[in-house]
């Protein structure tokens, strides 16, 4: 029962902060609220006993927001960006897309035959790793290394002398 109330409260926080992202008129606040929304979901995962998954959501989402901010500052230099600016454009189109995505996801959540058995014994972190990586280990490893090499190469090129105007 406590878990249910907690889940409802955290879900509400996630949804409200998620909506607020599109209401506020500052890029920085929108970023902060989006992160808050993700953190609420992460706490929900923690409450379900999925410690690894929950913490990784906090870790990855914070890093993701920071990467977003890099582009934000790079492309829209605007001291503190407090010049009011709406976070929405193409209102009609975005509404249609949002609604369609919501319907698909909600239908998926309701129609998927969720298992009713109790959780498998053992460490959920190990189970998650085995499920995600087990059959695809080689693909993941190769992709990861290729991605890393690309990033390092790009940085090496961009900081080499003469690349500036």
């Amino acid at each position: 029962m406590t878990l249910l109330i907690m889940a409802a409260a955290l879900g509400a926080v996630a949804v409200v902060t998620g909506i607020a992202v599109f209401v506020v008129d500052s890029m920085a606040r929108a970023t902060f609220l989006l992160l808050a929304s993700f953190v609420a979901v992460a706490v929900l995962l923690l409450a379900f006993g999925l410690a690894y998954l929950g913490i990784v959501v906090v870790l990855m989402m914070t890093i993701e927001m920071m990467i977003m901010v890099v582009f934000m500052v790079m492309l829209m230099m605007n001291p503190a960006g407090l010049e009011p600016m709406t976070m929405v454009h193409n209102r009609a189109g975005s509404r249609v897309i949002a609604l369609a995505v919501f319907v698909v996801l909600a239908a998926g959540a309701l129609l998927v035959p969720w298992p009713t058995r109790p959780a498998a014994p053992g460490d959920p972190t190990t189970a998650l790793g085995a499920d995600l990586m087990g059959p695809q280990m080689l693909t993941m490893t190769v992709l990861g290394l290729a991605l890393l090499a690309t990033i390092v190469g790009t940085v090496a090129l961009s900081v080499s002398p003469g690349s500036r105007r």
Partner: peptide
């Protein structure tokens, strides 16, 4: 600079 409608900026008011 002249203030254009920026592809990212839609100013209130």
């Amino acid at each position: 600079a002249e203030r254009h409608e920026h592809h990212h900026h839609e100013h209130h008011g």
